[in-house]
Design a protein around this nucleic acid. Structure first.
Length: 414
RNA sequence: GCGACUGUAGCUCAGUUGGUUAGAGCGCUGGUUUGUGGUACCGGAGGCCGUGGGUUCGAGACCCAUCAGUCGCCCCA
């Protein structure tokens, strides 16, 4: 026999108690907000063919190169636990031919998986809520999606702790010109570049832009700016987004160095980060105009965002769930039928109740205390014989005999 | 993938330069109270000292590996 305790898999935690209530509360809040803006729910599998993510996120992105939870299934197909939600939904759009009737507005929530070192605000299994809007690529959509994020965070009462940053990285043609330009700029300044950024220069030069290294930051002051490489249309579009957001009272800062790590982004990118730790994003997203096409559909532009529930949870102030059950205490097993009958009636009236099968008053009342009960209903010989219950107020200690009609009358006002 | 710190009871943690039978508080449990809780007092249970190897007459302590946690970096929600 092996008595060793078994732990959960690294970076994957059990969620219960206070944490669970808090997370559920965030999800409930999210659903309430997005439903009011007529987004509809979609659940895609938590596992996809690896190709879905490789094609969409980009095969040089860090997420794909080192963070994918991939393995071969029994028929030797490479499958991957989803590292994010967008790719699967875009795939579902194509798979189910949902592209006939646009716009489509979807929301989702659920677990995501990334194989990385656990630390503050980062787990191997974590949970996200998110929305996706597939439409025609107008600047209205960008604002629509950002304002919904804004109201979501506002409802959670954490707007004062976050900062909205937006940027545009243009369409791929303009972006490629820009990338070539910064490549040569940084190549000229190679020796001043941090070692991390030297690697980025080969793999993904765009990422040097949001380097936090002070040396790199210095270099960035003189670096080419993306806006000089964008077409008039791209710039106008960005201006339209900014002025529409301002006109509806959503404040933001423009961050020309905000680039995101997933290949599918184009044009608008945005992030809500913590005010006091601006590299810590709690909600982030952007536009992905080529993603659906990349996954075998037609050219359907989309935009969306996702927020990490665990990251939000740490910001939301404690929610007190004052769950206070009525505890039903039989003193002997033979009163169970009678107690079940009362419990059933409470259920039908929507009263939170629980039967305690200790058959020991002292233990039962102790349990009642520990579980935040305010009222105990005791049934013993006297109560049973006279069709009564003892109604005990656990705060005051007062106790009285009631018949069932009196009991439910009293509970109505308790 | 790289780095730092940590791992002793359900929880929070003591445990001296390596030296008998590993401790405390909280929690749990029994009793004082045979149908009455919260308080008090008295008792009890509960530990392969994360795991595996090594050094030593002797390891919870030292060394190595490994797993896990926390926190940085990369990256990301």
């Amino acid at each position: 026999m092996n008595n060793k305790k078994i732990a959960s898999v690294r970076g994957m935690h059990d969620i219960f108690g206070e944490d669970h209530y808090k997370q559920q509360d965030i999800i409930d809040n999210f659903i309430k907000v997005v439903s009011l803006f007529n987004f509809s729910p979609i659940n895609t599998p938590i596992m996809e063919h690896s190709e879905v993510f490789i094609r969409s996120l980009g095969n040089v992105s860090d997420v794909v190169m080192k963070e994918m939870y991939s393995f071969l299934d029994k028929s030797k197909d490479s499958v991957t636990l989803r590292p994010e939600g967008t790719a699967g939904i875009a795939r579902a759009l194509v798979s189910n031919g949902l592209t006939q009737n646009l716009p489509q507005r979807y929301f989702y929530h659920g677990p995501m998986f990334r194989y990385e070192r656990p630390q503050q605000g980062r787990l191997r299994q974590f949970h996200q809520v998110g929305i996706e809007l597939f439409g025609k690529g107008s600047y209205f959509e960008d604002c629509e999606v950002i304002r919904i994020a804004y109201f979501f965070l506002k409802n959670l009462n954490i707007l004062d702790k976050v900062l909205l940053k937006i940027n545009t990285i243009g369409k791929s043609s303009s972006r490629n010109n820009f990338i070539n330009e910064i490549k040569s700029y940084f190549n000229l300044n190679k020796k001043k570049l941090s070692s991390d950024s030297l690697k980025r220069l080969e793999k993904n030069p765009l990422r040097i832009l949001d380097s936090k290294d002070p040396q790199d930051q210095d270099l960035l002051k003189e670096a080419p700016i993306i806006y000089n490489f964008l077409s008039k249309d791209e710039l106008d579009n960005f201006e339209n987004i900014k002025s529409l957001l301002s006109s509806i009272g959503i404040s933001f800062i423009v961050d020309p160095f905000l680039v995101r790590g997933l290949d599918y982004y184009s044009d608008t990118t945005f992030e809500f980060t913590l005010k006091e730790n601006q590299k810590f994003a709690i909600l982030a997203g952007g536009r992905y105009n080529d993603l659906v096409k990349e996954l075998g559909g037609s050219q359907i532009p989309g935009i969306g965002w996702a927020a990490g529930i665990e990251r939000l949870k740490d910001l939301v102030v404690k929610i007190f769930k004052n769950i206070s059950p009525v505890l039903l205490i039989p003193t002997e097993k033979k009163y169970l039928t009678y107690i079940f009958d009362i419990s059933n009636k409470m259920f039908l009236k929507g009263i939170n109740n629980q039967i305690i099968d200790f058959y020991n008053l002292k233990k039962s009342l102790k349990y009642a205390n520990k579980n935040n009960a305010k009222i105990a209903i005791i049934v013993g010989e006297h109560e049973f014989n006279n069709f009564l219950v003892s109604y005990k107020n656990l705060d005051s200690g007062e106790q009285s005999y009631l018949d069932q009609e009196e009991l439910f009358n009293k509970l109505r006002y308790a």
